[in-house]
Design a protein around this nucleic acid. Structure first.
Length: 537
RNA sequence: GUCCUCUUAGUGAAACGGAUAUCACUUCAGGCUUCGAACCUGACAUUGGAGGUUCAAAUCCUCCAGAGGACACCA
């Protein structure tokens, strides 16, 4: 918000000559905000940056709004212009937070700008427990959806369930093999969870032994229930729609999308199979929609799913996929375009490597060798699990040490952040007991908050809106957890120096207001991240 | 073999081409007579290597080295 205001001032002064840029300064003696604008102008005009910066500085100093906004404007070598906010600007920020509360930093979207967005995530086959990678995508999708919702968009959180087809047939056969009804095969699902389910459902297996697809569907349905339980109850990940692939088949979406492809002449026959011309969309080869044996591919079903989403009027679809789908992105984006999805994004999360006793621990769902997402959440708790996964960018490989996960979780930054919020909350509770005395002091005077720690804290609160803007723009949810840590750190430093209780005077009153503002921001952050704000720790 | 992603402090991670590279943990040196010490203050880096573009490179380009992944008429 502040960056925008500064940009507007600069725009007034230099016009549309060059693109603007206002950055948040880090480190001492650089002001609160800065602009490297002089470098751009220097190049265009063939002059020294320092001279231009000096000229600009003088012009800015003559601007009325700038006079209110800044306490100081300085030129720094080799040509930066640094802005230091005035006490009044900081006070304004506090007033804004206290007034707007959870809406602070929220852009005021016009109804035209409000979009209908679908976030599809996890969508793991219901043929086994969720993996850590599923969980990573799950938290990411959940928080991304929270973000868009907070921004004022309409959001649908969708889980696409592959509950039919080859995979499910194999799944059904795997149980028959586990019961010794048919011989085992390489491609079948293995692992204890298969044996356990087979043991528990002897009668069902016997009943459907002639029809492995139906058995597979039955089992998939059962596993999906378990997944829903882990996702919604244990991990706090919310969905509003579970879309069944089987249902889409019944509604003929694969056929519908195929008809569209054919009509647009992007599908063709070759060697008895039907192909989609994805090479027109940067793919390195065309992809099969219908195999020569007449069977529909998974890709066709997926394209049908995209068609269904497009027909329901979404402006944007964001699909979060696991690392094993890397090679799938180009063709699914091609399909999205071809079915008329206005905007489509795919986020691929990188792999999570498990390390146990210093050795890599290879995971395979089919072989039944893995650590489940559920185990992790139960081991370390939802808040910790969320924070671990959400604090790294999606395209970063994670090495996850199981042995040290618990030990680490005790020192997890999430506690650091929660502790800060708890501290703020506790003071406010104590202050409430003294309310009478405080009210005698009168309205809080923010101009008294001039110490280094107070200033830093207000600036941090101010940057909340900027962080949110950045997160929305880049989908970089990890910036939020990082910001939470920084806010906590700034708060702890303030806490150490600035006491409230026992100092019932003007400054205490102002600090109480600062605490309230801090708590508002923390609460808002926690809501979006899906992390709890405990009363005690 | 082709393509993609990654390589930043002892560890794990941040950083639209912007200044003195940020955060947490570990280690070391300090700090509780006042709101909770699950805290604070300070110390710890030639951003894998070599070139190049730029006023400015962790970031962009080329090459090299290392790690992971994707390359089916599978899903």
């Amino acid at each position: 918000m502040m960056q925008k205001r500064i940009s507007e001032i600069l725009r007034r002064i230099i016009g549309d000559e060059v693109p603007l840029e206002v950055i948040v300064s880090e480190g001492e003696g650089k002001g609160d905000y800065a602009t490297p604008l002089a470098f751009r102008l220097a190049k265009m005009r063939g002059m020294a940056p320092m001279i231009i910066a000096q000229e600009l500085k003088e012009k800015i100093e003559n601007d009325k709004e700038a006079q209110k906004l800044f306490e100081r404007i300085e030129v720094a070598s080799p040509g930066f212009i640094n802005f230091t906010l005035s006490q009044e600007s900081l006070s304004q920020t506090l007033r804004a937070i206290l007034k707007e509360k959870k809406n602070y930093g929220k852009p005021k979207l016009k109804s035209k700008e409000k979009k209908k967005i679908q976030v599809e995530f996890i969508s793991a086959n219901p043929t086994g427990p969720l993996t850590l990678a599923n969980g990573r995508g799950g938290f990411l999708g959940d928080v991304l959806a929270n973000m868009f919702l907070w921004m004022g968009h309409k959001v649908e959180r969708e889980y696409y369930v592959n509950d039919t087809g080859n995979q499910i047939l194999t799944f059904g056969k795997s149980f028959l093999a586990a019961r010794g009804i048919i011989p085992d095969e390489e491609t079948f699902y293995k692992g204890d969870y298969i044996k356990e389910w087979a043991e528990k459902n002897k009668k069902i297996i016997e009943k459907y032994k002639k029809n492995p697809l139906v058995l597979g569907k039955y089992a998939a349905h059962d596993f999906l229930k378990k997944i829903k339980d882990v996702v919604q109850k244990k991990s706090g990940i919310r969905f509003n729609r579970y879309t069944s692939e089987d249902e889409l088949y019944k509604k003929k979406f694969p056929e519908k999308v195929l008809a569209i492809f054919k009509k647009n002449k992007v599908a063709y026959e070759r060697e008895g199979a039907v192909w989609l011309k994805t090479t027109d969309y940067h793919d390195d080869k065309d992809r099969v929609l219908i195999k020569s044996d007449g069977e529909k591919t998974y890709f066709l079903a997926d394209a049908g799913h995209y068609l269904e989403t497009a027909q329901r009027g979404f402006d944007l679809k964001i699909n979060i996929l696991g690392p094993d789908h890397y090679g799938y992105v180009v063709r699914i984006q091609a399909a999205a375009k071809l079915v008329g999805m206005p905007a489509s994004e795919v986020i691929v999360t990188q792999a999570i490597r498990l390390i146990r006793d210093g050795e890599e621990f290879k995971m395979s769902k089919r072989k039944g060798k893995f650590v489940t997402f559920e185990e992790l959440v139960e081991d370390v708790g939802v808040d910790v699990a969320r924070f671990i996964f959400l604090s790294v960018a999606p395209d970063t490989h994670i090495d996850f040490d199981i042995g040290r996960a618990k030990e680490r979780s005790m020192k997890n930054p999430v506690y650091y952040v929660q502790y800060a919020a708890v501290r703020a909350k506790n003071i406010l509770t104590k202050v409430r007991a003294h309310k009478k005395k405080l009210s005698q002091v009168g309205k809080p005077d923010f101009s008294l908050l001039t110490s280094k720690e107070e200033r830093m804290l207000i600036l941090k609160l101010l940057s909340f809106s900027e962080v949110m803007e950045e997160v929305v723009k880049t989908r970089g949810v990890h910036l939020l957890t990082r910001y939470a840590s920084e806010l906590a750190r700034t708060f702890h430093a303030f806490y150490e120096k600035a006491h409230v209780v026992g100092e019932l005077n003007d400054i205490a009153s102002a600090r109480v207001a600062l605490l309230q503002a801090t708590l508002i921001i923390f609460q808002n952050l926690f809501d979006i991240l899906g992390i709890s704000l405990p009363d005690k720790m």
